[in-house]
């Protein structure tokens, strides 16, 4: 896969992760009337959200560091 595709894929995946984590997996939004509002619907949804944010930024790293230059990434 080429670096642009990977990067774009990561950005899309990251934002999707953020979206789903925020709106679908984390504790629901709205007037908190029951215990359901205190627990994420999927465990560790907040971690997924943060991972999504990281994924978006990591895409830039991947984009730049993806093999193909003159040196090997030893990072």
């Amino acid at each position: 896969m080429n670096r642009t595709a990977i990067a774009i894929w990561m950005v899309v995946a990251g934002f999707s992760l953020q979206f789903f984590a925020y709106f679908r997996w984390a504790a629901p939004l709205g007037a908190p009337t029951s215990p359901a509002f205190s627990d994420p619907r999927i465990p560790y949804a907040p971690a997924a959200f943060i991972f999504g944010v990281m994924l978006v930024f990591l895409s830039a790293v991947v984009y730049e560091l993806q093999g193909g230059g003159e040196g090997e990434s030893d990072g």
Partner: peptide, 17 residues
Amino acid sequence: DNAPCVKVCPVGSRHKT
């Protein structure tokens, strides 16, 4: 019923039953 404390709790410790 519309508790500000529940809304702001970052970890869902404060909750409505």
